[in-house]
Design a protein around this nucleic acid. Structure first.
Lengths: 107, 107
DNA sequence: TATAAATTTTCCAAAACTTGCCATATTTTT
DNA sequence: AAAAATATGGCAAGTTTTGGAAAATTTATA
């Protein structure tokens, strides 16, 4: 996958919608749709559920794509090293662990 | 590494500083230091440079830890799947590529 | 080529979130 | 038990994010 913006654009075109038509469906005006597709602005996370319905795709998959894109943009922008994501993976496991052994985590 | 908060706490204690002493060094009051160490609030990214000097540790390493922690917290909180980070890694490579072939990326 | 449709860019205000402080608890140490 | 250290609740100021209107540009179509 290229980026979340490109993904949205591809799916929208697959459905044959213009940015304006699609914008009406997700309650964004046309310029915002453009910016989202060109990765100038992120789409609001809350809209991922709606996207999965409109595109008829698995929500979990879209959610992962959304966050992968977000993480990647940060990592790129701040020039993180190659292994930042494996550290992140280890850390996630750690959080899951405490969450089950100890009380529920809340950041 | 447990979490960025725990990392800071460990390093602070290694230096023998109280939260108040350490807070003075990083310009945070004591309660905020506490919250940072307990992962209730993130430390401001800008302070990572200062942290690397105070703890006498490599800045790049601290930066990676900072972002790994941030990513992990999101991934945990939103229950991302196991492979969200490998997707993110691939995406980062993609961004690096366009950045060199095409103009500079700006999100 | 002329016109219309679609997309992109610029600028900006409202809303949401973040940051970090003070006051107050609670826990730990002595 | 007292003091020191740490943790929590609530809030004000500042910043960021979100997304809209208007205008410019590009693309498609007749």
């Amino acid at each position: 996958m290229a980026s979340f913006g490109k993904f949205i654009k591809a799916q929208r075109e697959k459905k044959g919608w213009s940015q304006t038509e699609f914008g009406a469906l997700i309650k964004c005006n046309t310029p915002l749709v453009s910016r989202i597709e060109n990765d100038k602005k992120p789409i609001t996370f809350n809209k991922c559920k709606l996207l999965s319905e409109l595109f008829e795709l698995d929500y979990e998959m879209i959610k992962d794509l959304y966050f992968a894109d977000k993480f990647a943009k940060d990592a790129f922008q701040y020039k993180c090293s190659e292994n930042v994501f494996s550290v992140a993976e280890a850390q996630t496991k750690y959080f899951k662990e405490i969450n089950t052994t100890q009380g529920k985590l809340k950041f």
